[in-house]
Every structure is written in C-alpha cells, then in structure tokens.
Amino acid sequence: MVITYYGYPKCGTCKKAKAWLDAEGVSYHDVHIVETPPSKEELKKIVETSGKPLKKFYNTSGMKYRELGLKDKIPSMSEDEQFELLASDGMLIKRPLVTDGVKVTVGYKESDFTENWKS
C-alpha cells in the first residue's frame, strides 16, 4: 500500500512528521499540498476513510482560514461547498495529511504516527 504524504515544506509540523517517517524508514509519496492539493473527490474519500468530522481537516490556525472568516462561514456551508473550498486551496487543509487509502492521520502526533505508520 502506497502512503501519500500531503505537506508544506515551510511548515514546522510537516518537517517533524517527515523526519519521523524518514527515521522510521517509511516510504511515502511526497505531495506539496499547496501546489497539488487533493481533489474534491480525493478529499471526500480521505475524510470518509478517516471517520473524522470534516471540520478536523481545516487548518484553523492558518492565516488564510482567518482572512476568509471561515469560522463564521463554515456552519452555513453545505458539505459539498466545504469540500470544494478545501480542494481549492491547500493552505486551508490541516497538515500534514497522510493516507494509504485505509488509514488517515491529520496533523502530526507521534503516537498517531507510531500507531498507523510504523511497520
């Protein structure tokens, strides 16, 4: 199973996550989340697979999220509109986002990575 890692090179959390994956010898396909964000369909699959609510996939501490005032807008948006929005800008997606199609981690927490990605 191929692991896809969606990250942003300047993100400190992403750097920690990558360092962990590299140190554990986990091979992954590295995708720049801003240059190549996951498509709406890919995001739907990832969210569904994760079992987590859609709101967990927002980078709520990001400047873009605050600039767009999404905290107030999201509650009135349809799920489809939210997927469309996330797919339109990788900076809105919480990162790193790692999936192998069966498991998903959002953000970096060493215990989650150990549980999901350690071979």
Rank of each mutant, 00 (worst) to 15 (best):
D30F: 12
L43H: 00
G69R: 02
L92P: 07
E35A: 15
C11D: 05
G12T: 14
T13A: 02
K118Q: 14
A17T: 06
K64G: 09
M91R: 12
W20E: 01
E79M: 03
K94G: 00
L85Q: 04
M77D: 07
V26Y: 02
I33E: 03
P38F: 10
V98P: 00
E67S: 14
L70I: 12
E67C: 07
I93A: 02
D89Y: 09
T60P: 03
G12P: 05
T99F: 06
M63F: 14
M91P: 00
V26G: 03
G90A: 09
K10F: 05
E84F: 09
Y108P: 00
T4K: 07
A87W: 03
S50R: 08
I93T: 03
Y108S: 00
G51Y: 11
P53W: 13
K103V: 09
R95K: 10
P75L: 04
E67V: 12
P75N: 07
V2W: 11
C14R: 01
P37A: 07
K15S: 13
K15Y: 01
E24M: 14
Y8G: 00
D30N: 13
T36K: 08
E110F: 13
D89Q: 05
E81Q: 15
A23R: 08
P53K: 15
Y65T: 08
D112Y: 08
K71D: 14
M1N: 13
K118C: 11
I74Y: 05
M1P: 12
T49R: 07
Y58M: 08
G51E: 08
E110M: 11
W20M: 07
S61N: 12
L97P: 01
N116F: 06
S61G: 14
L54C: 10
M77T: 06
V47D: 03
D112V: 07
N59T: 04
H29C: 12
Y28K: 03
C14T: 00
K109Q: 10
E48P: 00
C14L: 06
K73E: 14
K73A: 12
T99D: 00
G25V: 11
A23G: 12
S76K: 14
G90M: 04
K55I: 15
D80Y: 11
E24Q: 15
W20I: 01
F57Y: 10
M77L: 14
E42R: 12
S61P: 06
P53M: 11
G101S: 04
V47G: 07
K44A: 09
V26H: 03
V2P: 15
V47R: 06
E24V: 10
D72P: 11
E84Y: 11
N116D: 07
G101M: 03
F113Q: 10
K44M: 05
E81K: 09
D80L: 12
D100E: 03
W117Q: 05
W20R: 04
S111D: 12
W20D: 04
L86I: 02
K18V: 13
Y5D: 01
S61D: 11
W117S: 05
E67D: 15
D80I: 11
L54W: 10
D72R: 15
V2I: 15
G69C: 07
G107D: 06
E35W: 02
L70V: 13
F57E: 00
E84G: 05
R95P: 00
L97H: 03
Y108A: 02
S76I: 09
K55T: 15
T4R: 09
Y108R: 00
G69P: 11
K44Q: 11
E110S: 10
Y5I: 04
